[in-house]
Computed example of a mutant assay.
Amino acid sequence: MSAIRTVVRGARRRRVSTIVIIAATAMAVTATVLAGLLLAASSAPFRNAFNAQHGAHLTAVFDSATTTETQAAATASQAGSASGPFPVTTVKSRPMEGPGPGVPPLKVAGRANPGGDRVDQVTLLSGRWARTADEIVIARTSLRLPTGFELKLENGSTLKVVGEARSISQTAQGWMTPEGVRALGPAGWQMLYRYADAGTEAAMTAHATALGPGVQTQSWLGVRDDAAHRTQLFVPLLSAFGLIGLALAAIVIGNVTAGTIASATRRIGMMKALGLTPAQVVRACLAQALIPGMIGAVLGIVAGDLLAVPLTADVADLFGTVPMAVTPWVDAAAILAAVLVIAATAA
């Protein structure tokens, strides 16, 4: 056993091959992590984001002229879970400075926070949530307003953009504090519902009809179909890219490890001459490959997770969903794949 430990420690003298294994494994694991996260982010992105955000199956706006806030709140019993009522209004504005057309009218809802564990958890992408009546959070769509931008309203007041957020249910184009919306004069009350049976057009029509006449509704099925049009072309391409990345990672690790072991033929002969059994030689070679391989795998995990942050944000923008967090099972799978490939090749 001491002879095996001596052989394994001898790997430190083979600095070039050790560094090559570490570097190759790190790059391969980085590619594996990015590929895995890319596959996860592009696999049913709308469904995953909708479930994670507790998206609203039905968005309803009750006219404040005919429905009181209490009456709107009473409809929550018709669904499995509901949020609201939130005051809603339309904000019409023009840029304070510069030529060009004004900002289009925005449907704004009054919410004190992004949602917590309620229906339609709004994801804050940048900045912060509105805290005062003169602040607004803009939904990330084709309209991009930087944080700090000021909207001049038709009544002469201003609203300062303090953040950018996204609702997978597309329940609003902007959010203010409830007090801010009430100060502008709410045009209605918004209710958000989740149902146990919401998978068909017939079911959603029945739920909308149960709310009564004159209620503006939006079904999640329409939002889902819009997202499907954006993903139907890109998902196969991203999936293929992810699979190619995984295959290349395996090839890189395998070739480098195989080359390192092949170059040690003379040393293996010396090990056998010293009395080591074939099984002991295999274990020594495995250790010489796995030790630097594990170091490279850890470095690859760190690099992959850091690079995944902007990558998953770009995928979310592409699909109109929310950025995907780093997934532990992808990291674990990448390390396991690297260890298995190195061990199999060396053995």
Rank of each mutant, 00 (worst) to 15 (best):
G254R: 14
T67C: 01
M204E: 06
G55R: 00
T59Q: 00
T25I: 05
R94W: 14
F62Q: 05
Q232A: 00
D120A: 00
P323T: 14
V161Q: 08
S239L: 14
L124C: 09
G10R: 03
A133I: 00
G300Q: 05
M191I: 01
G115I: 01
V162R: 10
G245C: 03
V281A: 07
S83M: 07
T200E: 09
W220A: 10
A273K: 02
W129V: 00
A338M: 00
G293S: 11
G180D: 12
A333N: 04
P310D: 07
G55I: 10
R166Q: 08
N48A: 13
G98A: 09
L153V: 06
P178N: 05
H229I: 10
I301Q: 00
T217E: 11
I22V: 06
P292I: 00
A73V: 03
R111C: 04
A262P: 05
A258R: 12
G259A: 09
T67W: 09
S167Y: 09
G259Y: 00
A31R: 00
T277P: 02
G259E: 02
Q173C: 13
A202N: 08
S142T: 12
K272C: 11
N255C: 02
L153R: 12
R266L: 02
A76G: 10
R128F: 15
G102W: 15
S43Q: 10
F149N: 11
G102K: 00
T231R: 12
G163R: 12
R47N: 13
K152T: 13
A40F: 13
T147S: 05
D314E: 15
A196W: 15
S157L: 03
T277D: 08
A196D: 07
R224M: 13
G180I: 06
A289R: 06
L124E: 07
G296S: 01
K92W: 08
A112M: 12
L299P: 00
T68V: 06
S219I: 10
G300R: 03
A313V: 11
P323Q: 12
S263I: 02
A73I: 04
Q53P: 08
L238W: 15
P278Y: 10
L159T: 01
W220N: 06
T59K: 07
D225Y: 06
P85V: 01
I21S: 06
A313G: 09
A210R: 04
I295F: 10
A334H: 07
C285F: 09
L318P: 03
I291H: 09
N155D: 14
D134Y: 08
Q170N: 12
A165P: 02
V181F: 13
T265A: 03
T277E: 04
W329K: 02
V29G: 07
